[in-house]
Design a protein around this nucleic acid. Structure first.
Length: 557
RNA sequence: GCGCCUGUAGCUCAGCUGGAUAGAGCGUUGGCUUGCGGAGCCAAAGGUCAUAGGUUCGAAUCCUGUCAGGCGUACCA
């Protein structure tokens, strides 16, 4: 593909004196293997009929690359290129291993998941976790060194609310009573206390005052390094329980482990320093007793970085977080995945950051996902009807799988959930349908697992390849062509940081294979050698693609 | 009010750095069927790509207006 593109570029330059990078696309199969609209683009600049230019370009290209089977002009001025069978087969053979190394030697910091200790993960956390892990894997495959980091708020009002609930439950600051909580229920126990504290904060003025006081105590505890007071004991113990709970969920999901948690408390001091420095330099301003960044002149809005009580807000901490990541990793790309409700917020942060670390602001990418909803507005969360918890999603998948198959296969359930979340373009809201996700028919993770296992089983049955078969027949060619597209799909997914391209392609590939397989015998056929090779390549690509999405591809189901 | 995002088949979604007849799954209808793992294949029905303009040889894709929905809009995260 690269050869054709280079040749085309040269030809355009020689013939027409224009230095453009012509686009090579995959047209409908009936037209050929590749197509370019270079002639149509040139027509405007040259003021000549596009078909005429196309004819000249096609002839020159054919001359440049005589090994091409066909170079034809079609429609308004497209140039369609058809590869020789050997070249196509060679491209298919390379496909499972030919990944574009666009990130070779690059350092990437991937920040995703980002749950807050003392609270339960909701469905959105599950979404960023799966997408973040997939993008990380993708970048690794493209040659990057990826640092997976997880950021979360271990200080702040939500922690104070949880601490209030905990202390209330324990009947005072009695850390010894924590021993009564069994290991299995620790994480949910804490999130229940948070819910109680949250309710108290909203409804009870006395409790609200207490929670505000607790908030300050939590900050003080970090400032003084207190690890031993009863209050500190409760705090540190429960914080660790939260992290343990997160780790349990990640293990359950079988995703790559995070390199580290960066707690909010750790980035608060550097964040405060940046804001203080910025205040002197005039980047930040005082307003109503708070320290703010005025974004209006840059088309943004004003945000508070230090509130009128002198406490840092999330904004200040985010600056500290960026500085910390930069200090530790000196990355080429730092991406963050969060819900899309904070896009405007993040723009202000990055803008403010640019005053101190312009290179970091430039290398930071904020990716977002939308809300997760359930079909028909069905409510599934215990607490907030329209905001399901991560565990609710997993439980629903397990239940749907059990209902459909009667079995309890964790591999299948994970494939179902991961694929369901990864097959959509990130950015917008999505509806998670548990029944469809576990379905063995249609565009699902389990379907692809089956497709892979079936291909492997054909290969087992086929044994050693024997005999020689020349060329490719029409059905074989069609499959080989689809297989050969794989590296281009990866390149696009890497460039756009969009793993859904892979999911979409894998399903199309499976469809291509099924069409081929319907009417073409593999084992025992005179063309067995060629066909067997294609089946092997197909299975390899499926496995490779599923692996990039962090979905298991077992040899048999 | 202002800003950001979304609006493609009954439902869920691809396609969106402009290009050839707008695609897929589910659902509906009809066919294939003792198969190499049929968890599949073929076919049909189903679309004013929210809407009105504009730019262009060419617009689902770019620009503007309108409508609808979501989110954000200073001391929550």
């Amino acid at each position: 593909m690269r050869d054709i593109q280079t040749a085309l570029k040269n030809v355009v330059k020689q013939q027409f004196g224009h230095d453009i990078t012509p686009e090579l696309t995959r047209p409908d199969e009936q037209f050929g293997d590749y197509a370019t609209n270079a002639a149509l683009q040139l027509a405007g600049r040259l003021g000549r009929p596009p078909r005429e230019i196309a004819e000249e370009l096609a002839a020159a290209l054919k001359n440049e690359l005589p090994q091409l089977k066909d170079v034809a002009v079609a429609g308004p001025g497209f140039i369609n290129v058809t590869l020789d069978d050997d070249a196509l087969l060679a491209a298919a053979e390379a496909a499972p291993h030919a990944k574009p190394q666009t990130y070779k030697g690059k350092v990437v910091v991937a920040e995703y998941s980002d749950p807050n200790p003392f609270k339960a993960l909701h469905a959105g956390h599950l979404y960023t976790t799966l997408v973040g892990d997939a993008i990380s894997s993708l970048l690794e495959a493209a040659g990057a060194k990826v640092h997976r980091v997880n950021y979360g708020g271990d200080v702040g009002l939500h922690v104070a609310r949880a601490m209030w609930g905990i202390i209330h439950f324990l009947g005072g600051e009695h850390p010894e009573k924590l021993a009564d909580i069994s290991e299995a229920e620790r994480a949910t126990w804490i999130s229940k206390r948070y819910v109680e504290g949250n309710a108290a904060y909203e409804q009870d003025e006395t409790a609200k005052a207490e929670i505000i006081a607790l908030n300050k105590r939590v900050y003080q505890l970090h400032e003084t390094g207190d690890k031993t007071s009863p209050f500190a004991h409760i705090y540190w113990t429960c914080r660790q329980w939260s992290y343990d709970g997160f780790d349990n969920l990640y293990a359950q999901l079988q995703i790559h482990p995070f390199e580290r948690y960066i707690p909010e408390s750790e980035v608060t001091p550097p964040g405060l320093e940046i804001v203080k420095k910025g205040l002197k330099e005039g980047v930040f301003a005082e307003s109503d007793g708070a320290i703010v960044y005025k974004g209006e002149d840059e088309g943004l809005h004003t945000r508070v970085f230090i509130n009128s009580n002198g406490l840092p807000t999330y904004e200040a901490k985010d600056l500290g977080l960026a500085a910390t990541k930069w200090r530790d990793y000196k990355f080429d790309l730092g991406f963050i995945i969060t819900g899309n409700d904070i896009v405007e917020y993040m723009k202000v942060i990055i803008k403010a950051l640019g005053h101190f670390y312009p290179e970091v602001a430039e290398r930071s990418r904020h990716l977002t996902h939308g809300m997760i909803r359930l079909p028909g507005g069905k409510k599934m969360s215990s607490r907030k009807g329209n905001n399901p918890m991560a565990q609710d999603i997993l439980d629903a998948a397990v239940a749907a799988n059990k209902a459909a198959t009667g079995a309890d296969d964790n591999n299948v359930v994970l494939a179902a959930v991961k694929y369901a979340f990864l097959k959509y373009r990130i950015g917008g809201d999505m509806i998670y349908n548990p029944e469809e996700s576990v379905s063995l028919e249609g565009d699902s993770g389990p379907y692809l697992q089956y497709a892979h296992a079936r291909a492997r089983s054909i290969l087992v049955k086929a044994g050693e390849a024997k005999g020689e078969a020349a060329g490719l027949d029409a059905a074989e060619r069609s499959l080989a062509r689809k297989i050969s597209e794989y590296p281009e799909v990866i390149a696009k997914a890497v460039e756009e940081l969009m793993p859904h391209h892979i999911a979409v392609y894998l399903y199309e590939l499976a469809q291509s294979f099924n069409r081929f397989y319907e009417h073409n015998r593999v084992v025992g056929d005179p063309r067995q050698t060629t066909r067997q090779q294609l089946v092997a390549l197909y299975a390899d690509v499926l496995k490779d693609g599923l692996t990039l999405l962090n979905i298991a591809a077992p040899e048999r189901l």
